[in-house]
Simulated scan of single mutants.
Amino acid sequence: MTETGADTVPRLAVEFCGEWFHPDPEAPFDIGREADLDVDDNPYLHRRFLRFTFEYGMWWLSNVGTMLSATVSQASGGVQSWLSPGHRLPLVVPTTSIVFTAGPTTYELRVELEGAPYQTVGRDDSPVGETTIGAAVFTLSQKQLILSLAEPMLRREGTSLAEIPSSAAAAGRLGWSPTRFNRKLDNVCDKLDRLGVKGLRGGPGALATNRRARLVEYAVASRIVTVEDLPLLDVAEDG
């Protein structure tokens, strides 16, 4: 049963492209192509994709779509979840990032929850040149590759996502040949795929066509790369 007393309902705020929305705990708040929050007229996006509801004293995020998934992460990068169709999760931290890709376009929402039951804690910075996630270690060149694709997103003003560079443009940014760039992109995607990161492969032996978007989506949401890492783009591999 929904609790709606003024003293029991934490205030939820959702931000998209600089505009703030405040879901009503008395009614579902939908996000999609034709919803309470109209993200875009992108035909790859569900009319109603994500839904906020207040139940059992908590705010919940549900995936009410049928095809798309969303990456939901704590703003500090400490928690990251993959929200697939038909599932939901509670919102329990002060600031949450929601990132999803529909066709060629990636979107990001920022969610702020007043009176969140859990608070964030700081994280230790990783040594320059390598980041560990589970059993995976990223070399300097692999991290540079991720940064070359994520650079527009990390440098953006506000919260809207810039277009992800083409492989040719990202290779040019690094001064690499297209062959070298694509080989390293294969290696990074394969490494994350083996760790269980979804969306980087389209099937057995076939990399997904939107793997660059998914790689950037995951890397930024889970803080594999941050704005503080951008100077690494100009570091030569020989140090």
Results as ranks from 00 to 15, higher is better:
Glu3Asp: 09
Thr4Ala: 07
Thr4Arg: 05
Gly5Ser: 12
Thr8Gly: 02
Val9His: 05
Pro10Tyr: 12
Arg11Gly: 02
Arg11Ser: 11
Leu12Gln: 00
Leu12Ser: 00
Ala13Glu: 13
Glu15Leu: 03
Cys17Glu: 14
Cys17His: 04
Glu19Asp: 08
Trp20Lys: 11
Phe21Asn: 08
His22Met: 12
Pro23Thr: 12
Asp24Ser: 15
Asp24Gln: 09
Pro28Gln: 05
Phe29Tyr: 14
Asp30Trp: 10
Glu34Gly: 12
Glu34Trp: 13
Asp38Gln: 15
Asp38Trp: 07
Asp40His: 15
Asp41Glu: 14
Leu45Pro: 12
His46Ala: 15
Arg47Pro: 07
Phe49Glu: 05
Phe49Arg: 04
Thr53Ser: 15
Glu55His: 13
Leu61Tyr: 05
Asn63Glu: 07
Gly65Pro: 02
Leu68Lys: 05
Ala70Asn: 06
Gln74Ser: 15
Ala75Thr: 08
Gln80Asn: 09
Ser81Cys: 13
Ser84Cys: 12
Gly86His: 14
Leu89His: 05
Pro90Glu: 11
Val92Pro: 02
Pro94Asn: 02
Thr95Leu: 11
Thr95Ser: 11
Val99Leu: 11
Val99Asp: 04
Phe100Asn: 04
Thr101Trp: 04
Pro104Glu: 15
Thr105Ile: 13
Arg110Glu: 13
Leu113Arg: 09
Leu113Glu: 04
Glu114Thr: 10
Ala116Pro: 10
Gln119Phe: 06
Arg123Val: 06
Asp124Lys: 07
Asp125Leu: 09
Val128Pro: 01
Val128Cys: 03
Glu130Tyr: 01
Thr131Trp: 00
Thr131Ala: 01
Thr132Cys: 01
Thr132Asp: 00
Ala135Leu: 12
Thr139Pro: 00
Leu140Trp: 00
Gln144Leu: 02
Ser148Leu: 10
Leu149Thr: 01
Ala150Leu: 11
Pro152Met: 10
Pro152Gly: 10
Leu154Ile: 15
Arg156Gln: 15
Gly158Cys: 10
Ala162Val: 09
Ile164Ser: 05
Pro165Arg: 05
Ala168Tyr: 09
Ala169His: 11
Ala170Ser: 14
Gly172Trp: 00
Gly172Ile: 03
Arg173Lys: 14
Leu174Ala: 00
Arg183Trp: 01
Lys184Phe: 05
Leu185Met: 10
Leu185Phe: 09
Asn187Trp: 02
Arg194Met: 08
Leu195Met: 10
Gly196His: 08
Gly196Leu: 06
Val197Cys: 05
Gly199Asn: 12
Leu200Cys: 04
Arg201Pro: 00
Gly202Asp: 05
Gly202Ile: 03
Gly202Lys: 07
Gly205Cys: 08
Ala206Asn: 03
Leu207Asp: 00
Leu207Ala: 07
Ala208Cys: 02
Thr209Ala: 13
Thr209Asp: 08
Arg211Trp: 06
Arg212Asp: 03
Ala213Ile: 06
Val216Gln: 04
Tyr218Gln: 01
Ala221Tyr: 03
Glu228Gln: 07
Asp229Trp: 02
Asp229Asn: 09
Asp229Arg: 03
Pro231Phe: 01
Pro231Arg: 01
Leu233Val: 08
Leu233Thr: 06
Asp234Met: 07
Ala236Pro: 06
Asp238Ile: 05
